[in-house]
Design a protein around this nucleic acid. Sequence first.
DNA 1: CGATTACTTGAGGCCTGTCAATGATGGTGG
DNA 2: CCACCATCATTGACAGGCCTCAAGTAATCG
Lengths: 216, 216
Amino acid sequence: MNRFKTGELEAQPGTEIMAQGTSSTHLFTCLTGMGLRYTTLEDGQRQVIGFVLPGDFIGLQAGVMLEMSHSVEASTHMRLCTFNRSDLWTLFRSHPERAYDLTRLAALEERFLGDALAVVGQMDARAKVAWAFHRIYSRLAAVNLGAADRVPMPYRQQDLADALGLSLVHTNKVLARLRQDQVATWSDGKLTIHDIQRLAKIAQVDDQAPTTRPLI
Amino acid sequence: MNRFKTGELEAQPGTEIMAQGTSSTHLFTCLTGMGLRYTTLEDGQRQVIGFVLPGDFIGLQAGVMLEMSHSVEASTHMRLCTFNRSDLWTLFRSHPERAYDLTRLAALEERFLGDALAVVGQMDARAKVAWAFHRIYSRLAAVNLGAADRVPMPYRQQDLADALGLSLVHTNKVLARLRQDQVATWSDGKLTIHDIQRLAKIAQVDDQAPTTRPLI
DNA sequence: CGATTACTTGAGGCCTGTCAATGATGGTGG
DNA sequence: CCACCATCATTGACAGGCCTCAAGTAATCG
């Protein structure tokens, strides 16, 4: 895969890596750091589509369609591995197994989005926040980041609120309650899980082995 | 593409074509009829992930991952084109341009899901319903089904409610209001658009050219 | 040290969910 | 042919979860 790598890029916190509605000649893989995917509606409201973690591929849509449907922004300092979009077609011709991985990755993203949709559509605020915590925690654990019960979560409460379809104020109150109930604490960019069992129960997920992600 | 076709299948209304959490040796393309994709949560609540229309591919997840994250059900009588899952890998080796289409399709689904997430997360009930109407209408228009202002929509109000994260009762009241306001009427499985301009405005979408879908 | 950003907390109101009852339609069996 | 039942759509009443408004604290920065 390194044959297609064209270089590395550093992004500072707050930088917009890809912009909704635009194309891009480059695709990325996140090496270190964390970020956000989000769409902005016509009336200015923002929906956070997902969180970008190390190992994530960025810009598949720009690669195979011509336009990104969402923006990607760095929340922390990020190191990115860069590819040329034009090499993507070459990869499909000469490396079918890599192309297959890419498709699997797209299907995995689709699955994640489906899960998120179910959460945002059906769960109440407490369950939503618990689910987000569980997702962040297990995904970071899968790439060996953070300690046993403490992982980085360098976002703002507003980001979480926009991800879950909640207001900032209500999100804050739910966070306070989860903290009081000794389930999980999120402060200073760190998420600490106090009771993973109860968290999983509130979030309605069975706490099982994480799915492995193909690396691009 | 017909080289991979292994046959056709008929499904009656209410039939579960693929089940969440299971694998499948077959993949499908919807030829005629309409259906639903949905996930069922642990507590029994249902989230409709999307609507299956003629031309849609079914089972990509079962194809490249080993498990479906959602179920697919026929709402009307459906005619399906069937493929063998094992042929998928062959396709990647021998027909890279088809494999590319498949990936584009996956990326398109991801985009649709992202849109849906933004709608369910950010919009109020009236806008949600208007958006769903607009989506169904424009997607069906893209495949030349239905008349100028009237398209088939063979779902139940409960299906729409589960798609938008609303209760059945409230969905019904919003439908009544859209009808009274002469925006759109949905009854007897038919959706009639009275004022596409206002509908698009309520749904916060610019009424523009539909995106073309690669056919598998 | 004023300005900015992010987090916190309280009060009040509305959008939406829940409960409940009714009507409409179609299939089924006596 | 008509009770009987199941499914779906409709409507009203009421409650509650969540949003909005507002104010205050804390931390960072030029």
